[in-house]
């Protein structure tokens, strides 16, 4: 019971922070709210007995991606007068888009038996060993294809940012 309440509190924190990311007039605050969103998502993952995923979530997303975003923000010019109001321009369209996305996600979750809410409980703790065995045995091809993709992205970034010597 307390666990469920705790989960609900965490999820509402995630929601609240994501709304703040979209609504915040200041870009820097927006990025920091995104960091809090990702951190609270990691907490949800811990509650769902996936500590490894939670750790990776923090190392990669909060520690890596958000830091890069901050760097990007700092490289741009700071203008104190520029305030982005972030109004909801067309609420009806936004509502339709959100509801459609929610429906698709819910359908996908309910159709996959491993993802059904009943299967998610702290009793089914996934160990790092299991994740490693799945990645390097059953899903080896996908794993390697992903690493090649990342390598290609890295090479692409280097080519794009290379100084053009005359």
């Amino acid at each position: 019971m307390i666990g469920t309440l705790f989960l609900l509190a965490l999820l509402s924190l995630v929601l609240l922070c994501s709304v703040q990311v979209a609504r915040c007039p200041d870009l820097v605050h927006s990025v920091l709210w995104l960091a809090v969103t990702l951190l609270s998502t990691a907490c949800v993952l811990v509650w769902l007995a996936a500590p490894f995923l939670a750790g990776i979530q923090i190392v990669l997303y909060t520690g890596g991606v958000i830091t890069l975003m901050l760097f990007g923000v700092m490289l741009t010019h700071r203008d104190a007068t520029a305030v982005v109001p972030n109004p909801i321009q067309r609420p009806a369209v936004a509502l339709v888009a959100a509801v459609t996305l929610l429906a698709i996600l819910l359908a996908a979750i309910w159709r996959t038996p491993e993802l059904a809410p009943a299967a998610m409980s702290p009793q089914h703790e996934v160990t790092t060993l299991q994740i490693g065995q799945v990645l390097l045995a059953e899903q080896l091809l996908a794993f390697e294809v992903l690493s090649v993709l990342l390598l290609a992205a890295m090479v692409g970034a280097i080519v794009l940012s290379r100084r053009k010597d005359p």
């Binding site: 920091l32 500590p51 750790g55 923090i58 909060t62 520690g63 790092t128």
Partner: peptide, 24 residues
Amino acid sequence: LDIGILWVMALAGLMVFPVWMAGW
């Protein structure tokens, strides 16, 4: 924790935030 190293690295990764926040 089973993910001891990962926990430490996660905290180390977050360490830039306060420094950056103070600087900004």
